[in-house]
Design a protein around this nucleic acid. Structure first.
Lengths: 195, 195
DNA sequence: TTGAATCTGTTGACTAAGCAACACTGGAGC
DNA sequence: GCTCCAGTGTTGCTTAGTCAACAGATTCAA
């Protein structure tokens, strides 16, 4: 789910093109109006592709939202090279920063990020977070089940970021993260010893 | 050749997409290096389309150059709505301005506008000019053969614009055109009476 | 409640684009 | 002379995208 950049490169150029057209169209529509009021028609009209083509790529608009969020968030992760490293205090810090950044941006770029929209994106992002944290923990010398600590950290990180992005008077991101980081780190460090 | 905007709109979206990809790629390559050193490979690589697809649209890169120049120049004409009007002194003035503008821009945007490149574009632009002037003259009450005056004016206008675009110390465009306009107008006005 | 309107998801026949392979050309260098 | 190389056009087959038409769902107002 994370290391998909390589596979996507050797995809049929038509497929890459179509997906990218759909994605661009969808993102620009999200900036205009709420997810619920966006129809598949709207997306395909703006993308200048046939509606049937849309359904060859996605079952419905919810799948598109899922894909769009995955793509954007994965890009954020890749930009910070968090997908190709292991657990350190600093990488964890970076990860929390990434999620906060992402949610803050999303709220500023989307016209109407309502309840339903948010809970759909929440699931998508938590999946990616969980995968990444499990990956980090699995590299540890200590061979134990990773699902409990990964779950705790996933929810904690997303919760923190969501809280931060909804605050009316936000402190600087650095300040917020420095305060929150130890609480998350303590749950991971005992399992994620440096390799 | 001129009124093609309507037809192009109801073209297969795949065709529009492909042509536009080729065109964009070609234009950006022209900004980098000379026309002669651009290969069909280069164009299709940058456009991310298959080389065989290129040949389904154009016989070779010279046809692409032709198409590209036609498109760009026609856009310049349409922008000034010169394609949907008739002969007036002021429209003629605007037409000369358009050709000058176009050639000046081309010289600034293309990396190496060498001799061969220029003579290829010259033919393309003169064709469009000739068509447009013939169209203007054909609307006149005076029903006579339009080819002689259209030819004279075409060559004169292109010659003026080419001269202007190559001048080392260019006067303002307005000043240049005001001086040149009467010499062209005198060849047309006797045929192109107001309708 | 009807029915007009709009969106959905799906189908089958058609067309454009992708791909790999081919023979051919025109240098560049030895 | 020669080969090597990079580009050119072309081909047959595969796959993705287009289009028009369909039945069903939802909404809204008459």
């Amino acid at each position: 789910m994370l290391l998909n950049s390589k596979e996507e490169e050797k995809l049929d150029p038509r497929v890459k093109r179509t997906r990218s057209l759909i994605l661009t169209s969808f993102e620009s529509l999200l900036a205009e109006k709420g997810f619920e009021s966006i129809s598949v028609q709207d997306v395909t009209d703006k993308a200048e592709i046939n509606r049937a083509t849309f359904y060859a790529h996605f079952p419905d608009k919810y799948a598109l939202l899922d894909y769009a969020i995955s793509q954007m968030f994965s890009q954020e992760i890749e930009k910070r090279t968090l997908n190709t490293c292991h657990y350190t205090h600093d990488n964890l810090r970076n990860l929390i920063l990434a999620v906060c950044d992402f949610l803050v941006n999303m709220h500023s770029e989307c016209a109407q990020p309502h309840q339903q929209f948010e809970s759909l994106t929440e699931g998508t992002i938590k999946n990616i977070l969980y995968e990444l944290l499990s990956h980090w923990l699995s590299q540890s010398k200590v061979k134990i089940s990773t699902d409990i600590p990964a779950t705790v950290a996933t929810w904690a990180i997303y919760g923190l970021a969501s809280h931060y992005s909804h605050m009316k008077k936000r402190p600087t991101l650095e300040k917020f993260v420095d305060e929150a980081l130890p609480l998350v780190a303590v749950n991971l460090e005992q399992f994620a010893l440096p390799v």
